[in-house]
Structure formats: C-alpha cells, structure tokens
Design a protein around this nucleic acid. Structure first.
Length: 892
RNA sequence: GCCUCGGUGGUGAAAUUGGUAUACACGUUGGACUCAAAAUCCAAUAGUAGCAAUACUGUGAGAGUUCGAGUCUCUCCCGAGGCACCA
C-alpha cells in the first residue's frame, strides 16, 4: 500500500493541469454563466498572505463546485500592480517599479499555482499594464467629456512623507493610512470625480444587492445622508447707541439658494428645526465669511482673528484630541430667531465644520450634545423644548408612560395640571441627567408649534420657513467628491494636456495608452516625478505643439481597481474596455474579499458602474450582486499577524509541511468564512489525518478489488453495482445525506460544516465493524464503485490534488473536474425509523426508536408506556405535545 | 459617545432557525501494538454526586414569553471591529 505523499502528488497534478490548460474556459458561451470574483491583490514583496489564501480558497472551492454542476464559470485573477510600495522600494534601491512588480507578480502566480487555484493567467487584468491602463484612461476621458471630472484647487489632505495628496477615505485618525505621518492641509490643484452626484443612488441601490447587512449599513453611514432645513437668521448690528436695523446686501457663498437674501443673514443648516425654540445662540465655523465682513462692525475683530488663525493651524488630529470645545463670541452682532424674534449671541467655534452644510449652526444645548458641552463651558442658557415621549428612566410623576404616548394625552395632562407638574418634572429630569436630550419627542414651550411630535413639528416649521422665504428643506451628504490626483510616479498617468493658455484637454483616444514615461527620478521633492521627464515633454510638444504641457499627476490606484472586474471577460480587447458581447458576463455574481474594503473600493467601484451606465457604456447599475467577506487570519494566540511581531505565517512553508490540500481545507474548516481564523499548526494535523484516512481507504479498497478479481471471486457484481443503493442501505443513505449537506453548505459558503460532514462520513466508512467483513482484507465499510466515486467528487473542490490522484487510481483517464456533481436521491435520505425524544415537562426522559411516519396517537401512546417516562409522571397528564419525527412532550 | 457584530467544554467551533446543547476537529487521560519511542488503532473527555443505572446543574448575568429558549423580548456586564465634532 502506498503512503499518502501530498508533496509529490501535488506537484505532479499542478504540472498536468498546467500542460492541459485545465483552467481554460469558453467565454463566448454564455449559457449557465456564473461569475465568481476575488479581490485582486497588490503584488507586494512579501508574497501572498494567509488572508488571500483563505478567500482565494473559498472562491476556488466554489468555482469547482459550480463548474461540476454544469455552470460555465468565470473565475479570474489579476494584479492591482500600481502603487506606493514598489515606488518607495525604487527610491530606496533604485530598482525600477516595473521590475519589482513583475518579479512580485511572478512570485504570486507561483504561490497561487502551488495552492492549486484554478486561474487562467493568460487572461489576467494587470493595472500597470499599458493594455489595461489604456482603458482606465479611456474611461477617464469619457468621464471628462461628460462632466463627471473637474479640476479644483482646494485644501487637500497632504502627506509630507509620501509627498502626495491623500483622499479623505485614506486618512485614519488624522494620519496617513499608509505611512502614519500626520496629515496637513495644503492648497493643491486636484482632479475630482463627481461621486456626490450619485450619492442618492449609491444609498438606494444597496437595497438591490445581497451584501452583508453591516457592510450596507457602513456604506450608508459613510455617504451620510441627512435631511434637514436651512434657516435664515437676520443679523442685528449694534452700534454705540444700541442695536440698529441697517441692512447691507452681502453675498453668502455658503448659501445654498441662488436668490439673494436682501437682509444680512446667517443661514444655518439643521436636521432638528423642531428644537428651534430652544436655540440660545448661533455658531459659525472659523472659515465662515461672516467674520471677515468689515461692514458688520465686529468689535473684537482681533480676538476673533487670532482664534481663527489658531484653529487653522490645528491639524485634524489636534482638533480631535481637544477635549474642550473652544470658541469666541462675535461681539457687536446678534442673530434673530425668525420664529420668536429673540436675539441671540453669535460665536465662532471650530467644533462647527466649514465644509458641511452652511458652515453655521443654530445651537440648541438642551437637545444636542456638542451644543450642551459648549453651553456648559461658556455658561450659556439651556432651554428644553422637547418632552421625551417615553424614556428609559423612571420618575414618579411619569411612571406610566402610556399616558403620554398620544399627543392628546400629554397635552391634556399639561393643561389639566395647573402646576405644570409634567413639564416641571421633565425639566428637572433633564437637568439632573446632566446631558442633552437628543431624541425626538413632543414640542413644548414652542408657541403655536407646541404639542406636536418632532416629525410633525419639523414638517410644519419647514413649510412656514418656505412660505416666508426664510429657509427650505434640503438634503446634505457627508460624502465628498473623490480627489484622484497623486503626485507620484508609479500610477496611471492622467491623460490630460494643457494648452499654452492653461486650458485642460483630454489627450484623445488616438493617443492612448498615454504611457508612463520611463526617464524619471523617483526621489520625492514635492514636485510630481513626471514633471522631470524629458520624454513626456517632447511627446506633448510633438503631438500638440509648442507651449503645451502635460498633466504630471497620476491617478489614485483606487481608480485602477474600480473597473477591473469589467476587463476580465475580455482582457485582450484593444478595441474596447470590454466588448459588448463579453460585457454580458457582468455583473459579478459572487464577490469574495476582505471587509477592509467596505468603504473605499466597494463604493468607488459602484460609482464607476453608475457613472458608466449614465454615459451609456453599461446597462446595469450594481457591479457585485452578492458579496461576502472573509475573516482575518490570526496567529495561534489569536493575535493579528504583522511583520513587526514576527508572527507572519508564510503559505509556502505550510504547503511544504502539510500539502496544499490540507492548507486549503483547514483554512475553511477552522471557522466560518466570515469569522476570524486562528492559524494553529497543531490543529491542521486533523485535516491531514482526514486525507490520510481517505487515501488509505481507497488504497485498501483498490487492493481488495484487484485481489478479488485475481482470485476470481464473486464480488465483482457488488463493486460494479451501478446504483448507489448498494447492498447496504445504511451506507447509501449516509452517502446521500452527505451529498445533500455538502452541496447545500458549499452553495451557502458554509465550508466549515461541509468539511465536517465529509469527515463524519469518512469516519463511518472507516470504523464500522459489523459489516466490514464483506471485504476480507479490510475492516472498512464497503462501497460500490459509484458510491466511492461520488465521495471523491464531493471532496474534490476542497482537495483537488489528492482527489485527482485517487480518481486516476480508480482507473480514470480524464480529470475528475470533468465529472458531474452528484445529486442526492430523496428516497435514499428518507429515514424509515427515527429516534423520538420523549420529554416530561420539557425534560428529556427517554428516547425511543419509532417508524418515521408514526401517527400522533401512536406516538403519544408509546411515549406514555415508556417506563422511564412513567417514573416521572406524578399526577394528572394535562397536555401532550407532538412534533412529527422529533418529540413528544408530556405536560403534568 | 454612537453604530455593527459577538459571548456555548481545556481550545477552534456545531446546533435543521423555538424542539435531544456541545456534532466535527485539536488537546488531554487511559489502553492496544512496540525492547522503546514516534505513528496508528481503541476508549473516556461539560460539572457535581454515585460502583452503577441514574439524578441534579449547565450556552456572560438577571428577569420575561412558551408545553419547551443557546435561539424570541427587556435590563445589565464583558469582548472585537468600525465611525467619531456631519448640526
């Protein structure tokens, strides 16, 4: 008997698959098509990490499963090969990024092949390949022509260390996500994609896709839609004699309305107009134009100027670390609340953001936490105008909240109660609780808007504002346009040239790919590396004429990865990013990848599809119909793997030690796909032993078979018995239950339980002693040829190498992956007898074997006649519950 | 602070979605084989009491709904991840 030697057979089959081009597929056949996609990796110098290994195994298993079910499955792989690490490496060593990248990709491909992943590497998408980025640039051109790209000089996040602009999404805690340097704000001209145009669709269309709920929720939060209203507060200017009514026309660039407001006003944005009677002051952001307005006669101009200057010097991090809210009152002006005519002070404070809403807010400390903090610090009045509907706290006068659940109830209570007990107790409660009450409730002390619930109040107040021309309903998004310019070398060149007058122009389709020049110095100087290229300079002048200059920035690498899934079905096309016919493969049916891409990549890819659809390049609106995340792979102690901790596990070593089949299967067996997996070398031996058992079973099966034939024994009929129902119903039934369970579990990506079911079945055929005598040489439960073949097919998606080998040992010349996935037989999985649990008052007292279709009456009778049950039947039987095929519960 | 998941043996984890809690795997202990070790095989493995059959307790804590709760409801505790002045 041969020993299971994974290293040997795995290399053997990898060679054969390579030679036979086993992963080739017919992309023009759209019958029963299925597109399963992995998030392609950045080819780093350290090679494939364990996280990739897990998710790529998951998709590979799924791919093989679907393929054997008769689907034509597209299962591609590629490389997100532009990016900073290769460039930083070049700065250090002088080795050109293209060389590093090429070498790393070769290593990745070697590793993926050594894990047995069935990718066709002739059909890759490689983002740094001119044949690919030609189309990145082409799409950029289309966006440009259709007004979805614009250039703007703004304060942008700038990383001093990377010497480049960073997208909002790439800033973490005020630091550069990649290198950890503090982000500063710098005025930089930058190209933007108009992703905000699609904010609404990006939220709504999440309803159309099958994604994890938390991922959808996070995307919605990130886009951050809030519905509210603008309100204009008139400014009163006080002169030495007091308040004057002088009116100056000023333009407010923060205003959302095009109509000029004739009076001097401050426009605020609020989602809680219902609290406006509780507004006790106004706050404007340090960037607000109001404070630069000389005509207002602001008395403490110097003090304010100093505060603003300080605020501007603060980095994002400083702002966040500041525990205390700070601000300065703008002396000499007051703002008038349009609802009650009250004059309230105006402050400038950096807790209000210049870039959101109108850059000014009405402060209602009673019902907003930030305003509460500020008001407490500067001893500003706090006025409660919302009564809680039902609270989580108890108080004697409001212990029965139901009384107040209707507006009428509350109103009546307040009116009836001469002492205003309820209101008083609300106020007391709010004061005692030492915090703002931010929830919706019922308006009080709000003049004619009192005794409305918050929603109604907002509606009525907004209506009035609109009628009076003092405000209107608006929707605000947190999402900003996507800044894509990077002052780096190793990225896709932005295909723009500037005329001598400085006008930007797309280089034109005929000049694509607009190649990345080779003659540059990578060392960052704050000037974009491409500016140093002579070749680029000459190219521009040759094509466009003297005085024309190139755009020197390259694109954010998230642009490259925002459309790569569109390229895979047609990666060699040089007439289109993807031909019309091949575009039929889209959208992606199943996308598997890390949860860290919840915001950026997934949002940007969705934006691309929507934008391309708008232009008419596509006809679907969501790129990924079903999305699942894989969990993180941790070390044996449950710690994150990191270079600095030195606990990074290298897949190569593990394959060398246990074989690819065991590595693959263990990754999926150890925990559910979406959970964290601890990489524990001690545990993987369990999977290795499992394959050894399977191997040994087939080996001894084969030996018996050959021996029986040599001895001219009469067992041949048994082996060849064509049906699955073999001589032993038990084996057939268990096999078919296994087929059912494994098929359903793979379909639902529950690989861990699929593997355990296979283990249960293999334990069964290896263990049984009762009928094992059938084959003399073995203690195993015998299986017929069709049964054994089905078992090996069930194992094949997880362990392609060992199953190919065993398949061959059973005398097959063709690959196992050309076989059909087995289907289960309902008749075989139906049990004739079942174990029925008998409970007394919900406690298990006995288990009896009954026929599966036992009638209710028979079951009850049997249950009652059980001795063990009777021992617990003291007193009268009140009720008997019967659950078919499961249990009887006797209630006494 | 807010949002989203989680909390089940010594460990990784199952549990047909309200119906036998701990499948499968690792580890541990004992046994077989061996001169011995490794490997392999067999047995035990939630806790307490008992020779045992068995009984009681048990899914982070507490309450509730139910004939019956790991699963549903409420309150609280703990852990992980994400967001964080977005008005």
């Amino acid at each position: 008997m041969e020993k299971y030697n994974p290293q040997e057979i795995e290399k053997k089959w990898q060679k054969i698959w390579e030679k036979n081009k086993a992963s080739k597929m017919d992309k023009d056949n759209l019958k029963k098509k299925f597109y399963v996609l992995d998030m392609f990796p950045y080819p780093s110098g350290t090679g494939l990490h364990m996280g990739h290994t897990e998710s790529y195994t998951a998709s590979d298993v799924f791919y093989r499963f679907k393929k054997m079910q008769g689907f034509n499955v597209l299962h591609p792989q590629g490389f997100d090969s532009f990016g900073l690490p290769a460039e930083n490496f070049a700065i250090k060593t002088g080795i050109h990024p293209s060389e590093t990248t090429k070498k790393n990709m070769e290593n990745y491909i070697r590793q993926m092949k050594s894990l047995g992943f069935a990718y066709d590497f002739d059909e890759q998408a490689v983002t740094s390949d001119p044949g690919y980025y030609k189309w990145t640039q082409w799409i950029f051109g289309k966006f440009f022509e259709n007004g979805l790209v614009y250039k703007k000089t703004t304060k942008t996040n700038w990383c001093r260390s990377c010497q480049t602009v960073i997208a909002n999404e790439q800033v973490a805690e005020g630091k550069c996500e990649r290198c950890g340097t503090d982000i500063e704000l710098k005025e930089v001209p930058s190209w933007f994609f108009k992703i905000t145009d699609f904010a609404e669709e990006l939220i709504n269309d999440l309803d159309k896709v099958d994604w994890p709920e938390h991922t959808k929720k996070n995307q919605r939060n990130w886009i951050g839609k809030s519905e509210g209203a603008t309100v204009s507060f008139e400014i009163k200017i006080s002169n030495e004699n007091g308040i004057s009514n002088d009116k100056f026309p000023i333009s407010n660039q923060f205003s959302n309305s095009n109509n000029q407001i004739p009076k001097q006003t401050i426009e605020v944005f609020t989602t809680r107009v219902d609290t406006i009677f509780g507004c006790t002051y106004l706050v404007v952001a340090p960037e607000h134009p109001l404070i630069k307005n000389q005509e207002l006669g602001i008395k403490n101009q110097d003090e304010i100027g100093e505060y603003v200057k300080k605020a501007k010097n603060k980095t994002e991090l400083d702002r966040m670390e500041a525990k205390d809210k700070t601000g300065v009152e703008i002396k000499g002006i007051k703002a008038v609340n349009p609802f009650n005519g009250e004059q309230v002070p105006v402050f400038v404070a950096d807790y209000v953001l210049g870039g959101y809403g109108t850059g000014a807010v009405m402060a209602v400390p009673a019902h907003d936490e930030r305003d509460w903090e500020f008001a407490k610090k500067y001893e500003l009045p706090i006025r409660y105008v919302i009564a809680p509907l039902c609270g989580s706290y108890q108080r004697p006068s409001m212990n029965d909240y139901k009384t107040y659940e209707t507006l009428e109830g509350l109103k009546k209570q307040i009116i009836n109660d001469k002492n205003d007990e309820v209101v008083k107790s609300i106020l007391t409660e709010c004061k005692i609780s030492k915090k703002a009450h931010i929830n919706d409730g019922i308006t009080i002390y709000s003049d004619k808007y009192s005794f409305l619930n918050s929603e109604q109040a907002r509606q009525k107040m907004t209506e009035w504002l609109k009628k009076e021309g003092l405000g209107k309903k608006i929707v605000n998004y947190r999402l900003r346009d996507w800044s894509i310019s990077r002052q780096r070398y190793w990225g896709c060149p932005i295909p723009i040239v500037y005329s001598p007058k400085g006008e930007a122009r797309f280089v034109g389709e005929e000049n694509l790919p607009w190649t990345l020049p080779a003659d540059v110095d990578f060392v960052p100087t704050g000037v974009a590396p491409l500016a140093k290229s002579e070749e680029l300079k000459k190219r521009v002048e040759n094509i466009f004429g003297k005085g024309w200059t190139a755009e020197y920035d390259t694109m954010d690498t998230f642009v490259d990865s925002s459309w790569y899934f569109l390229r895979y079905s047609d990666p060699h096309d040089d007439k289109a990013f993807c031909s019309k016919e091949r575009l039929e493969w889209l959208p992606v049916d199943l996308y598997i990848g890390g949860a860290e891409h919840t915001y950026m990549h997934l949002l940007f890819a969705r934006f691309f599809v929507k934008a391309m659809k708008k232009i008419g390049l596509l006809d679907f609106d969501e790129p990924f119909l079903k999305l699942r995340h894989q969990g993180m792979v941790l070390d044996a102690q449950g710690k994150k793997m990191s270079k600095s901790k030195g606990n990074v596990v290298n897949p190569d070593e593990m394959i060398e030690k246990f074989g690819a089949d065991s590595v693959r299967t263990y990754m999926l067996f150890a925990a559910p796909l979406e959970d964290e997996v601890m990489w524990n070398e001690q545990n993987i031996v369990g999977v290795y032993r499992f394959f050894e058992k399977v191997w040994n079973y087939v080996e001894s099966w084969n030996e018996s078979y050959e021996k029986d034939i040599a001895d001219n024994k009469n067992n041949i009929e048994f082996y060849k018995k064509s049906g699955d129902d073999g001589p032993d119903f038990r084996t057939a039934s268990r096999l078919h239950k296994t087929i059912k369970k494994v098929s359903e579990d793979i379909e639902n990506l529950k690989f861990n339980t699929a593997v355990s079911q296979l283990m249960i079945f293999v334990n069964y055929i290896r263990e049984d002693k009762g009928i094992g005598k059938f084959l003399k040489e073995s203690m195993d439960v015998p299986m017929t040829i069709p049964q054994l073949e089905k078992l090996i097919i069930l194992l094949s998606p997880f362990a392609p190498h060992i199953t190919e080998e065993l398949w061959e040992k059973l005398g097959h010349k063709e690959s196992i992956f050309n076989e059909e996935w087995p289907e289960y037989d309902e008749k075989l999985i139906a049990d004739e007898e079942v174990e029925m649990v008998v409970q007394v008052n919900g406690k298990v007292r006995d288990k009896i074997i009954v026929s599966a279709d036992i009638s209710e009456d028979d079951a009850k009778q049997k249950a009652l006649s059980s001795e063990k049950v009777q021992a617990h039947l003291s007193g009268e039987v009140k009720k008997i519950i019967f659950v078919k095929g499961k249990l009887v519960n006797v209630v006494v």
